[in-house]
């Protein structure tokens, strides 16, 4: 229940989550926005977060769970400090998504959906990040795009993330 991205205590997290919920209190329409912010705060969406959100917005816990599992952006389990999203859009696919995932597997012994034992990296496959001009590409931590990847370039990219 305590595993979280920041080092704040759990009480502190509950307070911060309440602040996120406040503008949407009693308004089920804000569910996706609240879940997005809550995941940024806690790192993932454990059951206690879901309960607090369900009560705050006035929706059932089952509905909250249903929305979380529908969208790939949301996670029920803790993730690594750095998220590697390998693009498997069409352009990247024809230019070497397989090469990128195989190289990462060889380097980190990591398959899509898994997290390294030291919680450093989580690997996922995503559908088109819109960097088709730079294929094959991957995004790390949702913002750093690394394009025109080749097997020998990937180790240096990963080294930037401790």
């Amino acid at each position: 229940m305590v595993a979280c991205a920041s080092n704040a205590s759990n009480d502190e997290l509950i307070k911060q989550l309440d602040k996120i919920i406040d503008p949407y209190r009693g308004n089920p329409g804000g569910l996706i926005q609240v879940l997005t912010k809550a995941q940024n705060l806690v790192g993932y969406l454990p059951k206690w977060v879901q309960i607090q959100i369900a009560e705050g917005l006035g929706v059932s816990l089952q509905e909250v769970y249903g929305v979380i599992t529908f969208y790939t952006f949301f996670s029920l389990i803790p993730r690594g400090r750095h998220k590697i999203s390998v693009c498997a859009g069409t352009a990247c696919y024809v230019k070497g998504t397989k090469m990128v995932t195989t190289t990462i597997k060889d380097l980190l012994d990591l398959k899509p959906g898994q997290t390294t034992p030291d919680s450093r990296f989580t690997l996922e496959i995503v559908r088109c990040i819109g960097a088709c001009g730079l294929a094959p590409a991957m995004i790390i931590d949702g913002k750093d795009v690394h394009g025109r990847l080749e097997p020998e370039l990937i180790p240096a990219v990963l080294e930037q993330y401790a």
């Binding site: 926005q33 929305v67 969208y71």
Partner: peptide, 19 residues
Amino acid sequence: AGAFVCGEETALLTSIEGK
């Protein structure tokens, strides 16, 4: 929040409602 089907118009409108 990452669901391809939400580009479909009726799905997108449902998603705007937080569902």
